[in-house]
Simulated scan of single mutants.
Amino acid sequence: MRLFKLLVIGVIILCGLSFLLSLLFPSTAVVERTGVINAPIDTVYAHVSNLRAWDAWNPWTRPDSTATLVYSDPAAGTGAWYSWEGKLNSGKVTILDSAPGKGIHYLLDIKGVRPVSSGIELKPSADGKGTAIFWHQEIKLGLLPWWKLRGFVADKIYGPVMESGLTKLSQVCEHR
């Protein structure tokens, strides 16, 4: 019985120390990717601000091949949204702010997961012939240690997918 009590006390102390140590970790994870697209800024903005155009380039538009998508009317600009319902999950993307020639900020809300604040910012490239693009996501991790540990691998998990999306966006915009 005494061994059992010591084991329980040890587990409680270990959990408490893990939680206290996790308070030192950041409570948000930021994933960012940049690129240059050899297309006018208006062309890139048209594909970024119109949620119906996301299917051609955004790797997260249809997270589940069985998902049913529903779009707002209009599906572009501030306040536009789309939602999906699938076997794996459901969620909604809402454009919070949209400025022609500058980009968008949007909220990704997946059922059972904390909302992700994201943005795609545009500006003329250094040579003035293309569009520089900056895609960022800020993921709120919360206070629980196992969620905070996810923040350390967020860039490795989401970064390559974002790079793939930027490559597809570049192909779509440049071959227009």
Rank of each mutant, 00 (worst) to 15 (best):
L51W: 05
T78L: 00
L107S: 13
L143R: 09
D64K: 04
P74Q: 05
S118I: 03
W135P: 01
V70N: 14
W60M: 06
A67R: 01
K92W: 05
L96H: 04
W81S: 12
K87I: 13
N58K: 00
T61M: 12
A76S: 15
G86W: 05
D42K: 11
D73P: 05
T94Y: 02
T131F: 10
Y82D: 01
N58L: 10
L88Y: 03
S65L: 13
G77V: 06
H105I: 11
S49M: 07
W135L: 08
G77W: 07
A46Q: 09
P115Y: 06
H47I: 10
T66A: 14
P124E: 10
W81Y: 14
V113P: 01
G77I: 02
P40F: 13
E138Q: 15
G77A: 12
S90T: 12
P100D: 08
L107N: 13
T94I: 08
V116A: 05
G79D: 04
I139W: 11
T43Q: 11
T131P: 04
R114M: 06
L144C: 07
N89C: 01
D109P: 00
G128M: 03
V116G: 04
T61R: 15
W146M: 14
P63E: 03
W135D: 02
V70Q: 14
V44Q: 06
W57V: 06
K102L: 02
W147K: 15
A76I: 05
W84G: 00
P100G: 10
G112Y: 08
G91A: 07
V70R: 09
T66C: 01
A99P: 00
L69E: 01
P115V: 07
A75W: 04
S117E: 13
T66W: 00
S98N: 01
W81Q: 12
I41N: 00
P59N: 09
Y45D: 12
D64I: 03
V113T: 13
A126E: 15
P100R: 10
S65M: 09
D55H: 05
R114A: 15
D127E: 11
P63C: 06
D109G: 00
A126Y: 11
L108G: 08
A67Y: 00
L69Y: 05
G91C: 09
G91Q: 05
L141Y: 08
D73E: 15
G103S: 07
H136Y: 14
W60V: 00
L108M: 15
K111Y: 02
E85I: 11
D42T: 15
L122C: 00
G86Y: 05
G142F: 00
G142I: 05
V48G: 01
E138N: 14
T43C: 02
T61G: 03
I139C: 04
N89Y: 00
G128N: 11
K140I: 07
